[in-house]
């Protein structure tokens, strides 16, 4: 399988706004290190998931890849070509190939736009179709996302739709250019449980029918397990563990992954598990701990952990872990 997206040593630091006086006296700028040196690739046709708690940098990574944010350092490759510095017309053309779906379908659709205009808007921006022609294409994609019969939806406004339907509209808009790659940022977390499965199934079917590749971003590891081929667990801007999902769930190696998995509720009242307790809370991304960034909370920490940062290494075939004490 070929790589569709590859990122190397990607970093994104956001400068922290300070007051004038603080700026005068501060020795150096401080930064929120949202993404701090990550490297991974997504294979064509797979669903690659970035998972982690809020503030781990998963959303920032997704936005960096489709160039909604400028990386501080690092390279992004799409189909083998470096797209890190693309600008203007070239970037615009790239956008036809990579799209994004956001978490909140209540915020991602303009409340004053009819569905036909919202979904067809990209066609107009890219000067590909308008009027009747646009409508034809819109009808076609609405059908693809299961909003049938599509004629019933074109003249509605977003407020007339349920959350699940809105997310389908967002999905329709994202596939209107027949993209190759879609970043799906928590697309089902605001959707009611009874509608969620149908939406996930739709995304899986679209992948098959349209040959899509997804970068799926989620905090919900149960959903990640259901949908993904491979999963990367992020903590404070870094990938701590990455592998195919079977290996990750059967044999989680990083202490953080283990703790995360043990905290997920199991829908079975007769199953009692041992939970791995972590001390404290996620440190601030402005003051990332020295050494291993997880050491302040790690139940297995030793002296070494606070001194040296572990490198992510392949411990088993295709299973990568960033921890000093896990070796192949």
């Amino acid at each position: 399988m070929s790589e569709i997206v590859k990122v190397e040593h990607l970093k994104k630091y956001f400068p922290v706004q300070k007051s004038f006086l603080e700026q005068l006296f501060a020795r150096k700028m401080s930064y929120v290190k949202a993404v701090d040196d990550i490297t991974f690739s997504v294979k064509r046709g797979e669903i690659f998931t970035l998972a982690g708690e809020s503030g781990c940098g998963k959303t920032t990574t997704g936005r960096l890849i489709i160039r909604l944010l400028e990386p501080t350092v690092g390279e992004i490759y799409f189909n083998g070509a470096d797209i890190t510095k693309l600008k203007g017309e070239k970037l615009r053309l790239l956008r036809r190939k990579m799209q994004i779906i956001f978490q909140d379908p209540y915020a991602s659709l303009n409340p004053r736009m009819k569905i036909v205009d919202a979904v067809g808007h990209p066609l107009e921006i890219h000067d590909l179709a308008k009027g009747k022609e646009k409508k034809e294409i819109v009808l076609e994609v609405l059908e693809k996302v299961g909003l049938t019969p599509p004629e019933q939806f074109t003249n509605l406004h977003p407020h007339q739709l349920s959350g699940g339907q809105r997310q389908r509209v967002a999905l329709a808009r994202s596939i209107i250019f027949n993209p190759e790659f879609i970043v799906a940022d928590e697309p089902v977390s605001m959707i009611d449980v009874s509608l969620r499965t149908a939406l996930i199934d739709l995304m899986l079917n679209l992948r098959k029918d349209l040959g899509l590749t997804y970068l799926f971003i989620t905090h919900d590891l149960a959903v990640a397990k259901y949908i993904s081929d491979r999963i990367a667990i992020m903590y404070l801007g870094k990938i701590v563990e990455m592998s195919n999902k079977e290996s990750l769930f059967l044999n989680p190696m990083h202490p953080y992954t283990q703790a995360l998995l043990s905290a997920i509720p199991i829908p079975n009242p007769e199953r009692k598990r041992k939970r791995i307790e972590l001390t404290g809370e996620v440190p601030s991304a402005i003051n990332i701990p020295q050494g291993c960034r997880f050491h302040s909370r790690c139940p297995y920490k030793r002296d070494e952990c606070s001194k040296k940062e572990p490198r992510i290494t392949e411990v088993e075939k295709e299973h990568f872990v960033a921890c000093h004490f896990i070796k192949s």
């Binding site: 339907q165 449980v193 009874s194 149908a198 149960a222 259901y226 199991i266």
Partner: peptide, 18 residues
């Protein structure tokens, strides 16, 4: 329709409609 991380190869079934 709720995924359980302890089950291997779980098949979720969607409830139709809304």
């Amino acid at each position: 329709s709720i995924p359980n991380i302890e089950l291997a190869d779980q098949k979720l079934a969607a409830i139709p409609g809304s």
